[in-house]
Design a protein around this nucleic acid. Structure first.
Length: 288
DNA sequence: ATCCTATCCTGTAGGC
DNA sequence: TGCCTACAGGATAGGA
C-alpha cells in the first residue's frame, strides 16, 4: 500500500502539525501486527514529547524525547490519522492511540495488520535488522545508473521484482515499480543483469522523477491509503500504467497489459517497453 | 548465494 | 440477495 511518497507525505504532515506535542495517554489494541506490539508500549510512551519525524524507505521514525524512537511501517493497509480533538465517529482497526496533553489525537489504523510498531532507543535503530538491510533511500541518496548496474550485475531476476527488493533501493513498491519501468521504456520482464548502462540511467532518472512528482501530489490512493487528514493522494490520476489493464497506453494507444511476477501484478505496455525500442532499433524493419 | 512460493490478515469487487 | 473467488500499496520464512 503505502510506498515512499505516501509515507513521506504523512511524515511531512506529522512534522508540520504534531511535533512538539506531549503524549498524555497511549493505548494499543493488544493485537499483533506483523510482529507483536510490546505490551508496555503505552506506559513507555506516556509523558514523551514528539521531537522529530524521519523516514527511511517505507519506514516512518517518530523521535521522542528521552532518546526513544517509535518505529512504524504501514504494511499494506496502515494509516496514521490526526485530529485536534477526538472525532465523534467510531474508529475501526485502531492499533495505537496517542492522546496529547493539548487534546490532539494521533491514531494508527491497520485492518490487515501487516504494519509494524516498535519502540527503541534511538541509538539502537542503527542496529535494527530491518533498517540495516535497507538499500539507499532514493530521495535522500538518489540512485545513479552506474550504481544500479553494479548492483544488478549477474542478477537473473526480472527487473520489476528487482526494483521491489528493499535491500537494493528502499521505498519503491508495486505501483511505482511499474510506473518507473514504463517511463524508462524498459520491459518489466528483462533480467536485471542484462540492462544496459543507458537503461539503468533511465531507471535511475525516472525513479527519482516519479517519486518526486508523487510526493508533490501527496501520493497515490489506490484503495485505502489516506494522509494524516484522511484525504486521498492525487497522483492516482497521473498513473500511466498501474491498474490500467486494457486501457490505451498514453504513449502509443495500444492496450496496457497485466502480468504476474513474484505474485504481484505488473502493468506495462508491450510496445513502448520492448527491448527493440529501448535500444533504438525498430522492431520490424520497414526500410526500403 | 539466489530465486520463487506461500503466508500473515481483512475488506471489497466481480462473476454467477 | 448471497455465495464464492481473486485480489489488494508489504515483508519474510522456508524450500528448491
Amino acid at each position: 500500500m503505502p510506498e515512499l511518497p505516501e509515507v513521506e507525505t504523512v511524515r511531512r504532515m506529522i512534522a508540520a502539525h504534531v511535533l512538539g506535542r506531549t503524549i498524555a495517554r497511549a493505548r494499543t489494541s493488544g493485537l499483533a501486527l506483523r510482529g507483536p506490539v510490546a505490551r508496555d508500549l503505552p506506559r513507555r510512551l506516556a509523558g514523551r514529547t514528539l521531537t522529530g519525524a524521519r523516514r527511511v524507505g517505507k519506514y516512518l521514525l517518530l523521535d521522542l524525547d528521552g532518546e526513544l524512537t517509535l518505529l512504524s511501517h504501514l504494511g499494506m493497509s496502515g494509516v496514521w490519522r490526526f485530529w485536534e480533538e477526538p472525532p465523534a465517529e467510531r474508529l475501526e482497526h485502531v492499533h495505537a492511540r496517542l492522546a496529547f496533553r493539548d487534546g490532539g489525537l494521533l491514531v494508527y489504523q491497520d485492518p490487515r495488520r501487516f504494519g509494524l510498531l516498535e519502540l527503541h532507543p534511538t541509538a539502537a535503530l542503527a542496529r535494527h535488522p530491518a533498517l540495516r538491510a535497507l538499500g539507499p533511500d532514493p530521495v535522500a541518496d538518489p540512485p545513479t545508473g552506474e550504481r544500479l548496474r553494479a548492483l544488478a550485475r549477474g542478477a537473473r531476476t526480472p527487473v520489476k521484482p528487482f526494483l521491489l527488493d528493499q535491500r537494493r533501493i528502499a521505498g519503491i513498491g508495486n505501483i511505482y515499480a511499474s510506473e518507473v519501468l514504463f517511463r524508462a521504456r524498459v520491459s518489466p520482464r528483462r533480467r536485471a543483469g542484462t540492462l544496459t548502462r543507458a537503461e539503468w540511467d533511465a531507471v535511475a532518472r525516472e525513479t527519482v522523477a516519479t517519486l518526486d512528482e508523487a510526493i508533490e501530489r501527496l501520493g497515490t490512493t489506490f484503495r485505502t491509503y489516506r494522509n494524516l487528514w484522511g484525504e486521498p493522494g492525487a497522483y492516482g490520476e497521473r498513473l500511466l500504467v498501474y491498474d490500467r489493464e486494457g486501457e490505451p497506453c498514453r504513449s502509443c494507444g495500444r492496450p496496457i497489459r497485466r502480468l504476474v511476477q513474484a505474485q504481484r501484478s505488473t502493468f506495462w505496455c508491450a510496445h513502448c517497453q520492448s527491448a527493440a525500442r529501448a535500444t533504438g532499433r525498430p522492431r520490424r524493419s520497414r526500410s526500403r
